[in-house]
Design a protein around this nucleic acid. Structure first.
Lengths: 206, 206, 206, 206
DNA sequence: AATGAATGAGCATTCATTCAT
DNA sequence: TATGAATGAATGCTCATTCAT
């Protein structure tokens, strides 16, 4: 019989995930002692294992949780603007702000990449694709509206994602001495968006 | 008495570093057994410690070694073109090609960020600043030549670095299914450069 | 207050014991997870503890249950023959057949010895003595009838028991490659009984 | 690369095996904490793992070590007598004496059966077969000399082995209250050997 | 200088047992 | 009475680091 995993209490699950973000972010995956997560969550170590099966699943659960929060945050940001370009700008700002407000979440993203490359469970891949598709539609709307040059939407979304990811990771790396994550992301967005704007709307964009 | 570290034999040092790249890249920092590096380098475990002091120093030595190789690779690429914009483009292409040719080097960069955030020893920070300054000069030359809009050179270099970093990391993450690292980096460069080009030179750039 | 143990439902008790035989036989005493016994018995883990107090008591209950079954099986076999020697032969055959039919029961016997040496609760010791006495009477009847040499009945019964135990354990160990448990037991009985028969002239050997 | 196991120091190996016999015999396989073996052997826990790889291999090493000692002990006993029957008798006596002198060795045998049924590594199986063959030759010599009835030598050896095993295990189980292991084994031998002697007229029984 | 044997702190995971519902 | 969620002590195994040879 495979490992039994049940989550009878949503509050405990949240407490564990919240503690896990904190500890993983500080100590890394391998450097984390599950006991510390349990202590910080106020539950027994056995409970952590009952809820998540093993340390890796716990980490994946944590990473998914964070991705979910990011998705919600970005989704909120999108609705704050009407034009496609405005939505993209808002997304970039929200992306930077999200990780500036929660530096621990950024660590989870970095660890995810460092420890598990492409081994993420299907659920996370699907969520990622969903987000890509979502933004792809915005780009296509921008193209239809003449705000964005006719480009391959998926590639542009991947590039924008890469740029934002690189911006926040690198900005956080240089110890906040220079500019905030949000400023970095906005600067990256400026450069990025100006580049993909159609010639006709250059004037209004810059 | 502080830890005695000497490197009497350059060949051994190279062998250890080469082995370290391999093993760190595969297993991560914490997941790496120093014994495996010693075995692969064909030296005793004690020798690794004599040459590098401890595991963390060994990793830093490895990361510095890789950064050095990247620097040389990019420096070569720069000289292949005369115009500032050409140099930047060539740099982007070279950046992608470097990590496409040596995926292990990319892992070292990712691990560096994941495990040690900003704890890198001064030597590496200095080297990093040196590279930033180097490219800053190119940007300034581009501005002077009218190829690049009047921007803050340092910020632009940081943004370009972030973009390239994000591009290769994310491209490698999506399991090569989409495009090669080099293509990703070039695509990122296209968007990036087009955005910072002065209005006057748009035509020739696109 | 001492541990409260009640068995309100005989069906559940049987279900637990039956499951326990299965799991203990497969995994050994220490290797057994009480949860698995509960699952297999279709009851909650708490119920197992309510019925048996703790894991050791559960095992002893299981071993006693099996011993009881063996006793019944051998008692039936005895009644199938009239002569003392016939009864002993029948007992040997039945002994082998019992464990051949129920290999799990043999594991319980082996585990019992391995884990608890002589720590068995008085009830099992008494039951064991009762069986020894029972067979002792048959031996004495055989002696009285002139079928068996005048030997110490208890010692002979202990030896026969040891021989049968050794036979089935060793036979089961050699992976059935050679002969069945029943054949092994019969062979052992042949040698054993022939040896204790009166008529022969064993002068040269003692 | 598979687990590296080296045994650079024979004294340490002996110390570990000796400690392992002691601890396994007292606590059983699962109940044994490898740390205790290390402590008793006066080495670090890591050393135990360096020498034996894992707990199971350590147990197998221990069991083999004991089997080896038994083999030597029995081999010595054999040479003390000239006639085949004498050799078999001497073997039985030696078998009982071996385990009476070293009750811990008996526990190892019992645990071996309880935990690993037939999973023993090939080396131990081969050693076992070698011993069976050795005694088979003695039985055949006995048959040739007319001391033993014409029986299947291998089967007889297996039966004798089973009988002796059962005798010592059962004798030890009944807490030495009755007779010593040696006496039990001799008694078993008496019954066993008398039965396989040629001269008698067992017609009515067979 | 080079080696690799020895060490033991550290950590993931399991599971007997309890007890609130 | 029955349940199963929660717990934390227990234990196998790893690996960074040291140091005698």
């Amino acid at each position: 019989m495979t490992k039994t995993v049940t989550k009878p209490d949503v509050c405990k699950e949240e407490a564990i995930l919240s503690a896990a973000v904190h500890v993983f972010a500080r100590a890394g995956f391998r450097g984390t002692d599950v006991q510390e997560i349990a202590d910080r969550a106020g539950v027994g170590k056995g409970t952590v294992y009952r809820y998540f099966g093993d340390k890796q699943e716990l980490f994946w659960g944590t990473a998914f949780w964070v991705l979910d929060k990011l998705d919600q945050h970005l989704t909120n940001a999108i609705s704050a603007s009407d034009s496609p370009l405005g939505k993209l700008r808002a997304t970039c700002r929200a992306y930077g702000a999200f990780f500036e407000t929660n530096p621990e979440y950024l660590e989870i993203f970095v660890l995810d990449r460092a420890e598990f490359r492409g081994d993420a469970p299907p659920a996370r891949r699907e969520r990622h694709e969903k987000m890509i598709a979502e933004f792809g539609k915005i780009v296509e709307a921008g193209i239809a509206a003449g705000e964005i040059r006719p480009v391959d939407a998926r590639n542009v979304v991947l590039s924008l994602g890469s740029t934002l990811y690189g911006s926040v990771v690198c900005a956080a790396m240089t110890a906040a001495g220079d500019r905030s994550l949000t400023e970095m992301a906005e600067h990256a967005a400026d450069i990025f968006l100006t580049g993909i704007c159609a010639e006709s709307s250059k004037g209004s964009e810059q």
